[in-house]
Design a protein around this nucleic acid. Structure first.
Lengths: 145, 145
DNA sequence: GTTGGCCTTGACGCCTGCGTCAAGGTCTAC
DNA sequence: GTAGACCTTGACGCAGGCGTCAAGGCCAAC
């Protein structure tokens, strides 16, 4: 006995929107059967597929990267990552993440250097200003006399 | 004596394209004077502004984030980061980078966990298969006799 | 005068993952 | 019978930073 839901309810159950579901269908990622009136009809299995998509998206996977996982589930495997294609996506993603993190850390270092240099330059200017400031005060005292 | 160049030459000097320069002008980021014939006319100062933009872009700054630096140079300061607004952008960027790096590292950890779990599951399946494999070999030997 | 290289503006395309609006169909409840 | 909640498809918009094409102007060299 499979519980059939319409697009609104499925979206709500997965914490997403009807628009997203229609988009996934358009990509062929989450196909939907149709009820007699033309409404999309989803079963419980579809909720699993959708949850898989959303989980991977939270990890920053693009929709196309979730496809092997979804197809793996559709093929009847226990988990979306039970298939070699999914594992390959994991590996590619880990490599991507490492490269991205590395780049960002290098950028962070260089920006921090620039910031430190600019701050020192400002302090130097402030110090110069401070050197001149007493002269001004003296000048003012002088003028006041 | 200021050397005047047209858009193509400036783009080449800065290692970018005429399209990019027109875009910057459209944003009001790098305004250009005009020659009598309507051609854009750039001076040497513009090359400095442009180099500042490109450097920051290489760091991953958005064009709007480069604006304070460019305005600082336009105001006659020695460096693009001689102004408080530029320093503030540096600070915001550092905070952004830290947050981004942190998120990516967390994601990396979680993806690695998922990958390890999925790999273990596959190895378990392989082990099961290996348990059965000798039986197959025996069966084959059996059939060969 | 004409070829060729550079310039001009305008406008659409791309990429991703939808948001949002429009015009209209379906079904339930009162 | 009609209000209201849900559904349908289609189509444009957005964000960023340009790429790319179109149609035409300017200028130097041959």
């Amino acid at each position: 006995m499979v519980r059939i839901v319409r697009i609104g309810e499925l979206a709500q159950q997965a914490g997403t929107t009807t628009r997203a579901l229609r988009y996934y269908e358009q990509l062929g990622l989450l196909p939907a059967r149709r009820a007699g009136n033309g409404y999309r009809a989803y079963g419980e299995e579809d909720l699993r597929l959708l949850r898989q998509i959303r989980t991977l998206q939270d990890f920053g996977f693009g929709l196309e990267e979730t496809r092997p996982f979804v197809e793996c589930l559709q093929a009847g495997h226990p988990e979306g990552d039970s298939c070699p294609a999914s594992l390959e996506v994991y590996r590619r993603k880990l490599a991507e993440l490492d490269e991205c993190i590395g780049r960002l850390q290098e950028v962070r270092t260089r920006v921090a250097e620039q910031y430190a240099r600019a701050e020192r330059a400002r302090e130097d200017l402030a110090a110069e200003a401070a050197d001149r400031a007493p002269q001004c005060e003296l000048a003012i005292e002088w003028e006041e006399r």
